[in-house]
Each structure stands twice: as C-alpha cells, then as structure tokens.
C-alpha cells in the first residue's frame, strides 16, 4: 500500500511548519526523511497520520484520501511508532504491544487469544519476547523503542510510519532495528521513517527526502539525493560523502583539521 502526500502544508494554527510537501512511499520500500531538528519531520508525520489536520494539500493512503477514512481504518492501514516515551502507569510490555491490536477489535471487545499470539509474535520477531511481562516504565529507552516497534508490528498494517526509530538505541540495537526494517520492507511493507543519521538512509533507504526549513530540498535515491553539498546546506556543517571499501556509503562531517 502506498502513502502519498501531495503539496501538503503542515503546522498548527498560527504556526505553519511545512510548505508544499510532496512525498511518495511505495510498497516494499523505505522512505527516509532527513532533516535537522525543527525541520518539520514530526509535524509531517502527524499530518500523514491525521493526528493534526493538514493546512493544505492532501494525503492518500492506498487509494483513499486520509480525511475520508475513519480513525480505526487509518489505524488498520498505517501504524505509527512514536519516539520512546514514558507511560504514566506500569503496564507490562505485552499490554503495550497488545494495544496495537485495538483497531482490529470491536468497540466493546477485549483482546483475545489470537491478539495475544500476534503481540507475542511481534515481540519475538524483535528478539525481546522475554521482556513481555516486564514493567514498561522500568525498561531502558532502547527497550521501550523496541516495544513500540513491536506494537506497530502487532497492528499488522501494510504501512509503518516511524519517528526516529533508532534515536534512543545503542549501537547493537540500532543494527537489529535497521535490519528488521529492511526485512519488513522486503516482505512488502511500506515504511516511512525519519532519522538523524544519513548513514542509516544509505544503509536501508530506498528513497530519501531531505527537509530544510519546512521545504523538501531534494528527493530521490540516497546516492543521488544525499550529496555532500545538500547535506552541508541542510545541516550547516561541511560534510564529506565517501564510499567505504565494503561498498557502503558513509557520511562524515568535517570536524576541522586535527593536525
């Protein structure tokens, strides 16, 4: 299922953020959104999910306009992974993941055995099944992030929108999550994520969109869009893009002459 934004204006009343944003994410691909803090990534995501109304333009999820879809139908089409947060009450990780099943339950129903299996499967897939009974409020930031991703998986949607899914993870967990995201895309899901690390875009991005001051500076494949010039402009520091001997492309900010 594809997600498309056409000429989208985002922001809050009296406080516009993004202007004329057009993005497209196809099935089986990963769209990476890059941009510095305050460039409007999170606002764009909230608009894509219908959590805040668009100030102009439109969002298409599959063949339907976002506004025409009821809340539960949106949640059956798009799952959202917010940045790891603290829950007010000590739910178990499994309960948090189970909440991902809500859109698949009737108004008055409770999650059943099948939902529990889906939740457990999602946790297992990320290798954190042993966290299931743990108190969510006592998990580390990285563990919480993984639980939230598991919740999105339990939602069993064809598309995922992830707000900086690797931000609070340690080096190893970053690798696990990136590998999992790539695998999910391979299995046919549509994934849109934001990241601060251009390397991640090079690693798993099918396409990237570079946000700068509320506008999309450029889009395309990572190799084409993430040029040293573009990254230097957006982040305001000199950047070099190099190909490592392994064939992976990495991005190196210039820290100045160390000699």
């Amino acid at each position: 299922m594809r997600i498309e934004a056409r000429n989208l204006d985002t922001g809050y009343s009296g406080h516009p953020v993004g202007h004329g944003l057009s993005i497209l994410a196809e099935s089986g691909s990963v769209l990476c959104l890059l941009g510095p803090n305050g460039s409007g990534k999170t606002t764009l995501f909230k608009t894509l999910l219908g959590l805040i109304p668009a100030r102009g333009g439109e969002v298409l999820i599959g063949d339907a306009r976002l506004q025409a879809l009821p809340r539960a139908e949106v949640a059956r089409r798009v799952a959202y992974v917010p940045q790891a947060h603290a829950a007010p009450f000590a739910y178990s990780a499994e309960e948090i993941v189970l909440m991902g099943r809500t859109a698949r339950l009737g108004l008055l129903s409770q999650p059943g055995e099948r939902d529990r299996e889906a939740a457990l499967a999602a946790l297992s897939r990320l290798g954190i099944a042993d966290l299931a009974p743990a108190d969510y409020t006592r998990l580390s930031g990285g563990q919480r992030q993984l639980v939230l991703i598991a919740r999105a998986l339990a939602q069993e949607t064809p598309t995922l929108v992830m707000d900086e899914p690797t931000a609070s993870l340690d080096f190893g967990n970053q690798a696990i999550v990136l590998r999992e995201i790539a695998a999910l895309a391979k299995s046919g899901l549509t994934i849109i994520l934001s990241t601060h690390d251009p390397d991640h875009a090079f690693a798993i991005g099918t396409r990237v969109a570079l946000l700068h001051e509320g506008n999309i500076l450029c889009t395309g494949s990572p190799e084409k869009a993430l040029t040293a010039d573009a990254l230097s402009t957006v982040y305001g520091v000199p950047v070099q893009v190099e190909r490592a001997p392994s064939g992976r492309i990495t991005c190196l900010p210039d820290f100045g002459d160390r000699t």
Partner: peptide, 12 residues
C-alpha cells in the same frame, strides 16, 4: 491512557 495522539494513531 497513552495520551490522545497515540490513542488516535491506534485507531481510537
């Protein structure tokens, strides 16, 4: 209890 935005993203 997860907050409005998350609850809505989960279909409520």
């Amino acid at each position: 209890s997860l907050g409005d935005e998350e609850a809505r993203a989960l279909g409520i």
